[in-house]
């Protein structure tokens, strides 16, 4: 929440070191403003991204995720992002099927020279996540669950 009591999402941003991380750098050094909601995790390649990292981010309380790598065809490792693309498409399908809103999951590509585009991507991602509100965790309890034992329910 910000001072106006508006929801400010926390977004886990996985950026590949060769393109998108450099794009974020460029945006910074060119003083392009973008929302401060992302927490950047630098990855060697989107191809290294285990989809588990994204599920785990939600497990631990991220309101949304952003994954950005090199444009298809420009991968530093030639085809890392092409493998990643399939993985993300499938992950996205499954997460939406399980009831995680599409707006929370943002996948895109940004090259090292696209500082401006990167700022736009972050803006869009934040906008998206704001639309669906705070993430309540897979248990819908908003990470407020107290420690306790498994209990037998009353029926």
């Amino acid at each position: 929440m910000n001072e106006n009591n508006e929801f400010e999402p926390k977004i886990a941003a996985f950026l590949c070191t060769w393109c998108s991380y450099a794009a974020a750098d460029l945006a910074g050094s060119s003083r392009i403003q973008y929302p401060p909601n992302i927490r950047v995790v630098r990855v060697p390649c989107t191809g290294r991204m285990d989809p588990f990292l994204i599920i785990k981010a939600f497990n631990m309380g991220a309101d949304g995720i952003l994954v950005s790598g090199c444009h298809p065809g420009d991968c530093h490792f030639l085809d890392g992002n092409l493998y990643a693309r399939r993985r993300f498409v499938m992950l996205n399908e499954m997460m939406q099927y399980a009831g995680v809103e599409a707006e929370r999951m943002n996948f895109t590509w940004c090259s090292a020279s696209e500082g401006k585009r990167f700022a736009g991507v972050v803006e869009d991602a934040v906008e998206n996540v704001k639309k669906v509100g705070p993430w309540q965790g897979f248990d819908g309890q908003g990470f407020s669950q107290e420690e306790g034992e498994t209990t037998v329910e009353k029926v």
Partner: peptide, 17 residues
């Protein structure tokens, strides 16, 4: 297997604009 392969023209369904 599906995820050990790719096609350059694979769909980007669900990606950002």
């Amino acid at each position: 297997t599906l995820l050990s392969d790719y096609d350059v023209n694979d769909t980007e369904s669900g990606f950002m604009e």
